[in-house]
């Protein structure tokens, strides 16, 4: 120890550097399903539990982004200085998940609550044995500071020579992939009860309305700039010009032809499907009539 003391320095080893030296910055990409899962587990937690933890599944993309696509809860017990994680459960569940989707591997773990606490380091150690450099995701289900904060951390070791002194949790950027949720429609996911699913035409109507308001907004903006009420912003101007330029410029004659052609195609299809339907009902009547004889 005495000999080593000259060289002893507090070393900060960023694990991401050791794992993949070329991509030091990690990003966590979270799919909405994970958040739903965490919330559901929290709602269904045992009475005694303060928080729930679970395993995050996903994959690590070539650019270093950690794609978190799925999760499952793991029962655990926490007292002041001890954490007991049901390891058997964790392994069983992992095996089951791998059967369905072998591409989704462990990438880390989640816990509810506002941030990292003492027990977290222990659990993180456990996950670090399962996978190199796990991600720790915290979802603040208590809305402690008025908003539902979602944070992701990686841990890095502070070591003194060969001895580990402490683990430091480093926050990494979170990228919420809400595209899938948008596809479904936030209206469906936001409220606690939706009476019926939107059908095709209602969705179309909604979309058109949104488009119309957008166009109106742009219209108003341009008008107010022309009248000198708003100071012109070159960036916005360019965006608008781009949007207008994205409409293909066709002579009216050509465009009319095009539109009419596709209209006729669609009409043909409509006609065909209606005629098939008529045939079906006719056939049924005839079939039953034939049996009468």
């Amino acid at each position: 120890m005495a000999a080593a003391s000259e060289h002893t320095v507090l070393q900060f080893v960023a694990p991401s550097l050791t794992a993949s030296p070329t991509t030091p910055v990690l990003t966590a990409r979270i799919h909405p399903l994970v958040i739903f899962n965490v919330c559901d587990c929290f709602v269904r937690r045992p009475d005694s539990a303060e928080r729930v933890i679970g395993t995050l599944l996903g994959s690590i993309l070539p650019d270093g982004t950690v794609d978190i696509r799925n999760s499952y809860a793991v029962p655990h017990n926490e007292s002041s200085d001890q954490v007991a994680v049901d390891i058997d459960y964790h392994h069983n569940m992992l095996a089951s998940h791998l059967k369905v989707n072998p591409k989704e591997i462990i990438v880390g773990w989640y816990s509810t609550g506002a941030g990292v606490n003492g027990g977290s380091a222990l659990i993180h150690d456990f996950y670090a044995r399962e996978v190199t450099n796990p991600i720790h995701l915290t979802v603040d289900t208590g809305f402690t500071n008025g908003e539902g904060t979602i944070k992701a951390f990686v841990s890095s070791n502070l070591s003194l020579g060969d001895r580990q002194l402490a683990a430091q949790f480093q926050e990494i950027p979170v990228d919420l992939r809400m595209v899938e949720a948008e596809r479904l429609g936030f209206d469906l996911l936001k409220s606690t009860a939706v009476d019926k699913l939107p059908n095709d035409l209602e969705g179309m109507e909604l979309t058109m309305e949104r488009l119309l308001t957008l166009i109106n907004d742009v219209h108003k903006y341009v008008d107010s700039v022309v009248e000198g009420q708003t100071t012109p912003d070159n960036n916005i101007g360019r965006f608008i010009a781009d949007a207008i330029a994205s409409l293909p410029k066709l002579p009216p004659q050509v465009f009319d032809n095009l539109a009419n052609d596709s209209l006729q195609d669609q009409l043909l299809l409509l006609y065909l499907s209606s005629i098939t339907r008529t045939q079906l009902s006719l056939a049924e009547k005839l079939n039953t009539a034939a049996q009468m004889l």
């Binding site: 958040i35 539902g148 936001k190």
Partner: peptide, 14 residues
């Protein structure tokens, strides 16, 4: 479709 109040809060937030 139904959602728990917690999920609903998160989705409104996000």
């Amino acid at each position: 479709v139904s959602n728990s109040a917690l999920v609903s809060a998160f989705m409104t937030e996000l």
